[in-house]
Design a protein around this nucleic acid. Structure first.
Lengths: 258, 258
DNA sequence: TGCGCACCTGTCGGAACTGACAGGCCCGGG
DNA sequence: CCCGGGCCTGTCAGTTCCGACAGGTGCGCA
């Protein structure tokens, strides 16, 4: 009998009631179906039944040698004042909470964040704005190179091990949902750009660093024809050279990075 | 009160018992934490408690103008004979079940697959090998361009609407788990290849199709120095030219396709 | 039968890339 | 203090790319 069965409640270590289990299933379904910023935004309030918070914030970005760079964000109900003060502060780019989140070091809550959290961080600013409780959880890069950070805060809220366990469970799903939302919300302009099979084939060899002559050999056509295909590829993708063509083709999913 | 609460069982439309709900949570946690083919393989048997099957198969590939190409697969317990016969048949590359799955057209089971499913497909072959029940579910490209297909079959098994609903719920999570497993199981050789900040900066402009002269302008250095950085990038990545450098950098996650 | 399209081939010249030479400045660690 | 590394600059020769010219074949469709 699996360990979870010993408890009268559900989820390994999550200690969920029946209503919460149903909400969680709902949220997980939404996570996998998240295809826009709006869908992601709509997903956040549902978490309120599980985590109990007033405001939520999701950041996407990168962590490079300990320095966190934010590239995108979705805000759900954070106070205007807080946002303004945060932007005006020295925090953006140096917030230790963000760096910790992007590193995927596990959830962290206001009550335990004080100890062991480097300065500067947004904790004091949150308390100044009356956001007395909160959780931050993040995730490192997964399918792609982008990290995520999720912050749930407000005047009330539970800060216990159960909530931490729930966040630990949810964060990877939220990360994937967020990445999906951001990836799909900016759809590649023009899909596959109407590239022909031959042109995709040529792109595949361009990606491998082959010269026109080599591509001609590989495809059994003349070097000139390989050049002809490359020119058409560049024209259709609207790019200036082969390097950009490869990047654009990968970005649009015409070929994969492999 | 959300609709799910009206039922004495859990999950919107999934109609799960307590034990099944716990298994499902467990599986979902594993999905988000899946980092290797082995982890994905270990995840499949757990589904047995929910779907009841003997053999499982996961395919990754692409769908191009209705033609499915399989690039990778993970097999859990399929009979040797079946695999041999399938490989020897005309099916690989033309199996309508695979094409349907890669198109993400929703789960499909043996009992209803006969009607409306194009030929050729693997159904007859499965029945020949005594695999009398089964489900196929697939998913289109999500974070990346790769599609997934999951096949659960055996001599026994439920083929009802509840199982279909469960598969519909699970498939996106399985797809992401599978993509994660494949993406991470072949780690980029050498990580960031020891590229310096400047070199990553140059790569970012290469990706945009800038010439050496333009990169020099943009970075406030001479054209020659830009060339110097490009040469070092190509040497470190072990590639032949800029186009391949861009592809390799994206594949390794040094820069993103953006 | 004509039309569009994918695919193929050729030449030419200027621009860009690639690799190898040789050197300079600045900074941190042994 | 020297050494290594990141970063910067230069020259030179050979290769490759890129755009624009002008064509040919085969296939499906109206």
């Amino acid at each position: 009998m699996p360990p979870g069965f010993e408890s009268s409640r559900y989820g390994h270590g999550l200690d969920l009631g029946r209503a919460e289990a149903t909400v969680l299933f709902d949220v997980l379904q939404d996570c996998a179906a998240c295809r826009s910023r709006h869908a992601f935004l709509a997903l956040l309030p549902k978490l309120g039944a599980l985590l109990s918070f007033d405001h939520a914030l999701a950041l996407a970005g990168r962590l490079d040698r300990g320095v966190a760079t934010t590239t995108d964000c979705v805000v759900a109900g954070f106070p205007e004042g807080w946002l303004r003060d945060y932007a005006a502060s020295e925090l953006p780019g140096r917030d230790a909470l963000v760096a910790r989140g992007f590193a995927g070091r596990g959830p962290c809550q206001w009550s335990d964040a004080g100890a062991g959290l480097e300065e500067p961080n947004a904790l004091a600013l949150c308390r100044d704005h009356g956001l007395r409780c909160g959780h931050v959880a993040g995730h490192g890069p997964l399918l792609g190179s982008s990290c995520s950070l999720f912050c749930f805060t407000g005047t009330r809220g539970r800060e216990d091990r159960r909530t931490a366990a729930l966040l630990r469970f949810l964060t990877p799903h939220l990360h994937l949902a967020f990445q999906l939302a951001l990836a799909v919300s900016e759809p590649p302009p023009g899909g596959d750009a109407g590239l022909t099979r031959r042109e995709r084939e040529v792109l595949g060899w361009l990606k491998e660093g082959k010269s026109s002559w080599a591509i001609g050999m590989l495809l059994g056509i003349s070097e000139r024809t390989a050049n002809f295909h490359v020119a058409n590829i560049m024209r259709k993708l609207g790019v200036a050279n082969r390097a950009q063509a490869v990047a654009a083709a990968i970005a649009r999913g015409v070929i994969d990075a492999g």
